[in-house]
């Protein structure tokens, strides 16, 4: 690993100033992804700025009923919070489906959405990758695509975003609060992550030196009937092949409203607005759920590759969404 300087700043403002002033600097949160990248040579920063103890690590209830989650809160603590478990079960379930107990203790709410793709070619510095080295080419296209995108990919990159938490946040209309060189701002969570387009090296809309300080979860009764369904290649400790975060409101057998996001299928958590639209006013039935999935998946394109590529993700996602909504609709609202 390339040696780097380490800075433990006094506060978040100093952290932001330090990183903003140095194009070769990075923030270090829980380190569950960055430390791997340091060892592998995927990241070779000159300066690592530690955030330990600098970011809010509590969950605060705002006047409008929203929850403000400090960026320093651990994934474990967020998953266990009674308010989250009661009001946003999809978020608690998503967090608990990710990684392992040890990693969830280290990982932070601010760092989790900023983890990078686990594309095997991105993580291997001996293979070309447009995300790691713009213009070098995409090794995943035509390679091992089992864990790659079927939605929103480009000819430059077919990687997927690995976070489970982010999928729930995207469904829940969360907002990201940041502190950057230009001050504070708030970004809708669904606008945090980018699709790869012709600049796959940029994962998010954040500027260099911009730091996530908190995530706000607006109050929304619909989220009480919500769930996260993750499908993966082993029972635990694996990234999603596909995942569904869903919240649903049903009255008299008719779907009044829905919030849906997909994971494991795109460069960003995929908010499925077309599926939501198709569900509103439809009968709560498998036929409606499948139609909603089809509405969202009309533009889905499998990535051909070794072992048959990833075409299976399209029927799998349709079936997983259907199963998730069926279970939710059949459940009494609490």
């Amino acid at each position: 690993m390339k040696p780097f300087d380490y800075l433990a700043p006094a506060d978040a403002a100093e952290a932001v100033r330090s990183v903003a002033a140095n194009p070769d600097a990075v923030f270090l949160g829980g380190g569950t992804n960055l430390v791997d990248h340091l060892k592998l040579g995927v990241a070779e920063p000159g300066l690592v700025v530690g955030l330990a103890g600098l970011l809010p690590s509590g969950i605060e209830e705002l006047d409008d009923g929203a929850l403000r989650i400090g960026a320093g809160v651990s994934n474990s603590d967020l998953a266990a919070d009674p308010r989250v478990r009661e009001r946003f079960p999809v978020l608690s379930q998503a967090l608990l489906s990710g990684a392992s107990g040890q990693l969830r203790n280290m990982a932070t709410v601010g760092g989790n959405p900023l983890q990078r793709t686990r594309c095997v070619y991105f993580q291997d510095v001996t293979t070309p990758c447009n995300k790691r080295e713009p213009g070098s080419g995409c090794s995943a296209i035509g390679g091992w695509t089992r864990h790659h995108a079927v939605l929103g990919a480009s000819e430059h990159c077919i990687a997927v975003h690995p976070s489970d938490m982010a999928v729930a946040m995207a469904a829940l209309d969360a907002r990201v609060r940041t502190l950057g060189p230009a001050g504070e701002r708030a970004i809708p969570f669904v606008e945090l992550h980018r699709l790869p387009g012709d600049a796959p090296e940029r994962d998010t809309a954040l500027e260099h030196g911009e730091l996530i300080t908190a995530i706000d979860l607006p109050a929304q009764p619909i989220a009480r009937r919500s769930a996260y369904h993750k499908v993966r290649d082993r029972a635990s400790y694996a990234f999603a092949l596909v995942s569904v975060a869903a919240a649903i409101e049903v009255e008299g057998g008719v779907i009044r409203d829905a919030r849906i996001a997909f994971g494991g299928v795109a460069h960003a958590p995929w908010r499925a607005r077309r599926a939501e639209e198709a569900l509103r006013g439809a009968p709560a039935s498998d036929g409606s759920y499948r139609a909603a999935a089809d509405a969202e998946l009309t533009d889905a394109r499998p990535a051909e590759g070794l072992d048959g590529g990833n075409a299976f993700k399209i029927p799998l996602l349709r079936r997983t969404l259907t199963a998730t909504l069926r279970d939710l609709a059949g459940e009494d609202p609490r």
Binding site: V120, T127, W144, A235
Partner: peptide
């Protein structure tokens, strides 16, 4: 070369399995 060359990519049965 083997592209899933770590224990995140090369799955072995975990306790839960």
């Amino acid at each position: 070369h083997v592209v899933n060359h770590d224990l995140a990519g090369y799955h072995i049965t975990a306790n839960a399995d």
